[in-house]
Simulated scan of single mutants.
Amino acid sequence: MQELQAAQNSGADDSAKASTVAGLQAQVTATSAALQQAIAKLSEAVQEAGGSTTGNIVNTTA
Protein backbone atom coordinates (compact mmCIF):
# COMPACT_ATOMS: atom_id res chain seq x y z
CA MET A 1 0.00 0.00 0.00
CA GLN A 2 2.82 2.37 0.83
CA GLU A 3 4.52 1.64 -2.47
CA LEU A 4 1.28 2.37 -4.32
CA GLN A 5 0.83 5.71 -2.55
CA ALA A 6 4.47 6.61 -3.14
CA ALA A 7 4.12 5.83 -6.84
CA GLN A 8 0.98 7.93 -7.13
CA ASN A 9 2.58 10.86 -5.29
CA SER A 10 5.94 10.71 -7.05
CA GLY A 11 7.22 13.46 -9.28
CA ALA A 12 7.29 11.16 -12.31
CA ASP A 13 5.20 11.88 -15.38
CA ASP A 14 1.72 10.40 -15.63
CA SER A 15 2.81 7.62 -17.98
CA ALA A 16 5.53 6.44 -15.60
CA LYS A 17 3.13 6.64 -12.65
CA ALA A 18 0.51 4.63 -14.52
CA SER A 19 3.04 1.95 -15.43
CA THR A 20 4.31 1.67 -11.85
CA VAL A 21 0.80 1.60 -10.40
CA ALA A 22 -0.28 -1.08 -12.90
CA GLY A 23 2.71 -3.23 -11.95
CA LEU A 24 1.97 -2.89 -8.26
CA GLN A 25 -1.71 -3.69 -8.80
CA ALA A 26 -0.72 -6.82 -10.72
CA GLN A 27 1.39 -7.92 -7.74
CA VAL A 28 -1.58 -7.37 -5.41
CA THR A 29 -3.81 -9.43 -7.71
CA ALA A 30 -1.28 -12.26 -7.85
CA THR A 31 -0.90 -12.27 -4.06
CA SER A 32 -4.66 -12.30 -3.59
CA ALA A 33 -5.04 -15.23 -5.99
CA ALA A 34 -2.32 -17.18 -4.18
CA LEU A 35 -4.02 -16.57 -0.84
CA GLN A 36 -7.37 -17.74 -2.21
CA GLN A 37 -5.76 -20.95 -3.47
CA ALA A 38 -4.08 -21.55 -0.11
CA ILE A 39 -7.35 -21.00 1.74
CA ALA A 40 -9.14 -23.42 -0.58
CA LYS A 41 -6.48 -26.10 -0.02
CA LEU A 42 -6.61 -25.55 3.74
CA SER A 43 -10.39 -25.88 3.67
CA GLU A 44 -10.08 -29.14 1.72
CA ALA A 45 -7.57 -30.49 4.22
CA VAL A 46 -9.83 -29.65 7.14
CA GLN A 47 -12.79 -31.32 5.48
CA GLU A 48 -10.75 -34.42 4.63
CA ALA A 49 -9.67 -34.62 8.25
CA GLY A 50 -13.33 -34.85 9.22
CA GLY A 51 -13.72 -31.30 10.43
CA SER A 52 -15.96 -28.46 9.50
CA THR A 53 -14.74 -25.11 8.20
CA THR A 54 -17.35 -23.12 10.13
CA GLY A 55 -17.94 -22.57 13.80
CA ASN A 56 -14.94 -24.47 15.12
CA ILE A 57 -13.05 -23.34 18.18
CA VAL A 58 -9.63 -24.81 18.70
CA ASN A 59 -8.84 -25.99 22.22
CA THR A 60 -5.15 -25.34 22.83
CA THR A 61 -4.99 -26.70 26.39
CA ALA A 62 -3.08 -29.91 26.96
Score class of each variant (00 low, 15 high):
Q27W: 01
K17Y: 02
A45W: 00
D14N: 13
Q8D: 05
A26Y: 01
S15C: 07
A16M: 12
I57R: 08
V28Q: 13
A26W: 00
G55M: 12
G23Y: 00
V58E: 09
E48Q: 15
T31C: 11
A38I: 13
T20A: 14
D14E: 15
S15F: 12
S15T: 15
A16N: 08
Q5W: 01
T29E: 15
V21A: 01
E48C: 00
S43Q: 10
T20C: 01
K17D: 02
V58H: 08
A6W: 03
G55S: 14
V21W: 02
T53L: 07
L4S: 04
T61N: 08
N59D: 15
M1A: 03
Q37V: 14
M1N: 04
Q5V: 04
L4P: 01
S52K: 08
L35C: 08
G11Y: 06
S52A: 14
N9F: 07
N9Y: 06
S32E: 11
G50I: 08
S19E: 15
D13Q: 09
A40D: 12
A62V: 05
E48R: 13
V21P: 02
K41R: 09
T54L: 11
L42Q: 10
L4H: 06
V28W: 03
D14L: 15
A62L: 07
G11K: 13
D13W: 10
L42S: 10
V46I: 15
I57L: 13
A18V: 03
I39A: 14
I39N: 09
L42A: 15
I57W: 06
A40S: 11
D13E: 11
T20F: 03
Q37D: 15
G23N: 14
T29Y: 02
A12E: 14
T29K: 12
M1F: 04
G51N: 09
K41H: 06
V46A: 14
T61F: 07
A45R: 13
L4T: 02
S43N: 08
V21E: 06
S32Y: 05
N56V: 13
M1Y: 04
A22L: 06
Q36V: 08
A40F: 04
T54V: 13
E48I: 00
V21Q: 04
A18N: 10
V28E: 09
A33C: 00
T60G: 05
A26H: 05
T31S: 13
A40C: 01
S52F: 04
A30H: 05
Q47L: 13
Q5N: 09
Q25V: 02
A12P: 07
T60R: 09
E44R: 03
L4E: 08
L24I: 10
S19W: 03
G55A: 15
V28C: 05
A38P: 02
I39P: 01
S43P: 00
E3A: 06
G11P: 07
S32H: 05
E48M: 05
